[in-house]
């Protein structure tokens, strides 16, 4: 099947593969070790799935903010995103 007209790039493929793998990983994790929703520092009830969503959405804004302030490349922003995601999973 010729999909060249869709102009896919390996970078976007890698990006979506990572997100897909994260979702699968979270799915497996929730089956192996089910977790009840909990109240974190935001005083809202979150499941691990909610925390992943907050991490991904927040990371997108961190990257946009980095681009606005410093421009590319985004390596430092990615590092901040990882720290942010860790904090979300730990405390939110």
């Amino acid at each position: 099947m010729d999909l060249s007209w869709m102009a896919w790039t390996w970078q976007t493929a890698l990006f979506f593969s990572l997100i897909f793998l994260t979702l699968v990983g979270m799915g497996v994790w929730s089956i192996k070790a089910p977790q009840a929703p909990r109240l974190g520092i935001l005083r809202i009830e979150t499941t691990p799935g909610d925390r992943l969503f907050i991490s991904l959405l927040g990371s997108a804004f961190i990257c946009l903010g980095w681009l606005a302030a410093f421009g590319s490349p985004l390596w430092w922003a990615v590092l901040i995103c990882l720290v942010y995601a860790f904090a979300v999973f730990r405390w939110v």
Binding site: W5, M6, G65, L67, G71
Partner: peptide
């Protein structure tokens, strides 16, 4: 998402642009 990191001048030919468009938009 795929188009947002590329540029095209028509004729379905695309060129890699990286994060340039996001930088311009923000």
């Amino acid at each position: 998402v795929n188009y947002s990191v590329q540029d095209t001048f028509g004729n379905n030919q695309f060129f890699w642009a990286g994060l340039q468009w996001f930088e311009e938009i923000v």
